[in-house]
Every structure is written in C-alpha cells, then in structure tokens.
Design a protein around this nucleic acid. Structure first.
Length: 510
RNA sequence: GAGCCGGUAGCUCAGCUGGUAGAGCAACGGACUUUUAAUCCGUAGGUCCUGGGUUCGACCCCCAGCCGGCUCACCA
C-alpha cells in the first residue's frame, strides 16, 4: 500500500501506537469464550422464563467475543453490538461498572471492526433487548482499516433488517470478499447454504452406494467435454499438461476397474468467456453407475434433486428471481428432435441443411456458414426451445454428432441415449448411457479429430489409453455431470454465478 | 469480441447549460449513564479511474485506455 496513509487509516495507527505505549497488546493470542452470542442469549432467556433470575434481573456471567459492528456512546455509558459466528449481541458499557480507566480506554480506543472479548451478566434493556452488561473487556485485534459497515435498522413490527448505505459496489465486494462477508451476513448465509447443498449431494450418493473418488486435475490429455483447456507445463517431465475440463474419462476407467458406482465433486477448468453463468473454474458433480442406462439416471436425478431441495428449502418449490420452480417428480421429458420440430413447425429430418441455415439466419444467428448440420440443430434448439424450459425438463436423445461419448440410441438411428436437464432455461446437468464399444468410440474420436483439423479447438483429442480401458470392458453404465454452482444459484436465488463463488475470477486490479 | 450503463471522500450517493466539488454515514473534538439508522454542537477529509485533447476555464465536452455490471456473441 502507499506510504501516505489517509487520515482515516492514520488515526487507527495512532491508536495502535498508544495501546503499545501503554503495554496493551493490540493483537491478542487467545480468548477464553464461554458461549456464542446466540447461546448466551438463549441461556439468559431460559433462566428468565424459568423465573430463575435474581432480583436485579441479571443472568449468569457470560464470556462472549466478536467484532464490534455498532457503537452508540452516551457519555458515561455506551451501547455496542458485537457479531460472532452465530449472530449479534448487544453490549452495555457503563462507567461506574467498568471503572474510569477501563471505560475511558474503550471510548478512546475502540473502533468499529475491532475484535473484542467481554465478560458480563446478561440483562434485558428497557426496550427489551437481551444485552451483556460489560464487567470486563479486552481488545483481541485492533482493526486498522475501517470496514464498510452500513447502518442496520430493524423494523419494530416486522423484525426485518434494513441496511442503510451498506457495502454495495459489486466490484469491491468480489475483490474484497472478506469485507463483503464481514459486513453482509446474508452473503455468509449463501455460502453456508452452498456447503449444505454439497453435503446433501454427497450424503445422497453415499447412501445410494456410490464411492467418492479423486481423479487427476492435472492431465496429460483433456477430455470428457467440449471446451478449451488451461495449458501448463511440468518442468521435471518437460511436457505440457492440462487442467481438467471434466472428470468423465477417468471415472469411467474406474468402472472398468470394477467399482460399480463412483462419484467426484471437483473443480473443472475451462478457458472460456466469463459471464453470469460461467466462471473459468467451477464445481462439477459427476457420477457413474454400472448397469444403469439414462432412464435410470433420470429417475435417480429426480430423487437426488428432490432430496436436496427438500433439505435446503424445505419443500419441493423454490422461488428463483420471481419465478416459481417445482422440483416435484416427474420432471418433464421431451425429445430433442421432436421439441425442435414443434418449434420449427416442421420435421427437422425433412429439412435440408440450407433450409436449417436459413431458419437460423432468420432468427439472427450468425456465423452458421461453416457449421455442420448438428451444430445448426443445436443452435436452433438453443434459440427456440431452451428459453422455454423453465420447469425442470429432461431433453432427451440428441444428434449423435454432438455427443461423442454417448451410446447410440437402441432403436432410433442418428441419435444417442443422452439427456440434458434444463431448469430456468439453463442447463443444469448432462448425462448419457455411456458409450462402451471401444471400436465405435475410436471412430467417434476420429470424427472429432476431423473437426479439430478443421479448426474446432474444442473438439476431443483421441485418448488411446481410454480406448484401451474400454477394450478391457466397460459394463453398461449410466453417467451424469451436474453444475454445482448453478444448482446453488437456483437454491439460493442468486442471479450470478459470482454470487455463489467466494472468489470469482476478475481481471487484475491494477 | 460488440453494444449499453457505471467508476466523485473510508462507505452510499448528488453534482444544472463547462465557472474550479457537496450530503448522509464513518472519522476527529465536545455534550449526554437503558440506546438501537441514538441525538445535539463543532472540525477535518478529494489523483472527481488513467492519459491525452478542446477551452480563458473540464467531474462535466472529445479521443484513447483500464476496471466493473448488464445484454449479445461464445459456451455440452
């Protein structure tokens, strides 16, 4: 930081110096806390309702710690709130209780943002708030930079918190997430819910007999999705390596190895654009189960999401940005070509490539000149059908060229046994009956190679080792990938992926 | 990558037709021993995102750039 401190920072440094001059340690080593703020309040209230409080109305002494988040001085007394992991509790500093020295020190030295520990007896103020009368206090950490606190107003009738002029600048909130979290408790709640969602997913899979595994994030070849990778270099091996874009091919190798059901919740990395649905690193759940096909996966996915939604929001319905979404099974199921045919009011199979391109152009889709037929179908689908898929819907049976790792449909030529789950017009999961014919897999990879040679940087590479694994024998297997961040967005009602990722990728600050 | 919007005090924001920057909160000093957006009196605080240009004069107009948001493009 700069050598010239702003006056506001200098004032705090001066307090720090004064504390040290008085041999008061501004950065303590520990604090013996007896209870959290919430526990202290509950203990007082239960004593109160049991009629167990002494004459003076004060409960048993509590030792609580936290960050000073508000301060209202009244001369020879002061009210403050501290906040800990459980919430806020009011403190009452009183000169004749603390003594002149301790009281004056608090007035002189304490700032919003400081961490303190206090010991004192809880009581109920005239206005009814459970409050700790501070008998002793101790500075735990001096804050040298003011946190961007707003003023919190609690509506007396509804009990709702209204924050006035808080910390709102999106850029600063993402860059300084620590400050965002420190002053916006509802942001902390989002990430608690995120942890709950991941925990629930994990438990559901464990309960269903899946084995949690870890596969390489650093890979010699990347695959399992169509995306540009991050490329890095291993010095000792002197070779290029890639950050994974998906776990898929490794997880299926494990099914070859004899595990019947595996899953992984991991970061994937894709070297692509950033917007409110995409962060370059994101969390993906993938699971694979022997003997299942994509119908089994759909049934399981419905149950999995129902369980998570029930655990997190307590029901089957959520409100997302003003839209009600129901996760009640069964989800809608539509077939890719049929849905597209309805939207086009014509059977896509009977339309020529030129017809399809003309339709795309009519919709304002550009750059369709070099795209192959499946690609055009995909674009048309994205434009015409996807936005309407608000309630959870499985889109089934995609064109084979779009799905190099999926098994051909058992009766319908030209398509594969695949589904994508759409919610609120966005893709949440992608799954298929896994292609387990190594000869077919090789020719699919080779078709990808042609796309690659034609300049498609996202086309698959040929993974010889993966084909070798398939040659040993992959049992019939169903596999699914789900974007965990997007699920968290839905269940926490956040419109941007950056609001469910603690430290989203941003450009350099300078 | 394109379009639109934004960047002014620590925070939230205002700033007219171009005339030399303001409020609330926070800070600092003072009053106040049950307040809670505490209140009252006073004080201080600015690289107006950066760099050019136009002008007697630029927070304001023009050009270029940086950063962020949204939309589009991209994206299994």
């Amino acid at each position: 930081m700069s050598d010239e401190l702003s006056p506001i920072l200098r004032a705090r440094r001066e307090k720090l110096d004064k504390l040290r001059e008085r041999d008061l340690e501004p950065f303590a080593y520990r604090f013996e806390r007896s209870q959290t703020s919430a526990a202290a309040r509950e203990a007082f209230e239960s004593a109160e309702s049991a009629g167990a409080l002494p004459e003076d109305g004060h409960g048993a002494v509590a030792r609580v710690g936290g960050r000073v988040v508000s301060w209202r001085g009244h001369g020879k007394s002061a009210f403050a709130h501290i906040e800990d992991g459980d919430g806020r509790i009011q403190l009452y500093f009183k000169k004749n209780v603390l003594g002149d020295e301790s009281f004056d020190l608090a007035l002189e030295m304490l700032d919003l943002g400081d961490w303190i520990g206090v010991a004192g007896a809880p009581f109920r103020t005239r206005t009814g708030e459970v409050t700790v009368r501070v008998d002793e206090w101790q500075l735990l950490t001096k804050s040298l930079r003011p946190l961007p606190f707003g003023k919190v107003e609690v509506d007396a009738e509804t009990g709702e918190r209204v924050v006035h002029s808080g910390f709102a600048d999106t850029e600063s909130r993402y860059r300084q997430r620590y400050a965002d979290l420190a002053v916006n408790p509802e942001v902390r709640d989002v990430f608690r819910t995120r942890a709950q969602i991941v925990r629930e997913l994990r438990q559901a899979l464990d309960d269903a007999g899946f084995l949690e595994v870890e596969t390489p994030a650093l890979q010699p070849l990347y695959g399992g999705a169509a995306a540009r990778p991050f490329v890095t270099h291993h010095h000792a091996l002197d070779r290029e390596m890639y950050l994974r874009i998906a776990d898929e091919l490794y997880l299926k190798r494990l099914i070859v190895g004899g595990y019947e059901a595996v899953y992984e919740i991991a970061k994937d990395f894709r070297n692509e654009g950033i917007d409110r649905f995409h962060n370059p690193e994101f969390t993906m759940l993938e699971f694979y189960r022997a003997y299942w096909d994509y119908h089994d996966l759909m049934d399981f996915t419905e149950a999995l999401l129902a369980r998570v939604v029930a655990a997190v929001v307590g029901g089957s319905r959520i409100d997302f940005q003003g839209t009600e979404i129901s996760f009640e099974a069964p989800f809608g199921r539509i077939r890719f070509m049929e849905a597209l045919g309805e939207a086009l009011e014509a059977d896509p199979a009977t339309l020529s490539d030129d017809d399809l391109r003309a339709r795309a152009r009519a919709l304002g889709i550009e750059d369709m000149g070099t795209a192959g037929r499946p690609r055009v179908l995909d674009k048309l689908f994205g434009e015409l059908v996807e936005p309407g898929l608000v309630q959870p819907t499985f889109v089934m049976d995609h064109p084979i060229e779009l799905s190099p790792l999926a098994k051909p449909h058992r009766t319908d030529p030209g398509v594969v046994e695949r589904f994508e789950l759409y919610v609120n017009g966005a893709e949440l999961a992608n799954a298929f009956s896994e292609l387990n014919d190594p000869l077919d897999q090789r020719s699919r990879f080779e078709a990808q190679t042609e796309l690659r040679d034609a300049g498609d940087v996202e086309a698959h590479q040929v993974d010889e080792d993966y084909i070798r694994a398939l040659e040993y024998g992959l049992p019939p297997t169903g596999g699914l990938g789900m974007g965990v961040d997007r699920l968290v967005m839905l269940l926490t009602d956040q419109a941007s992926i950056r609001d469910v990722i603690l430290f989203p990728v941003l450009r350099a600050e300078e």
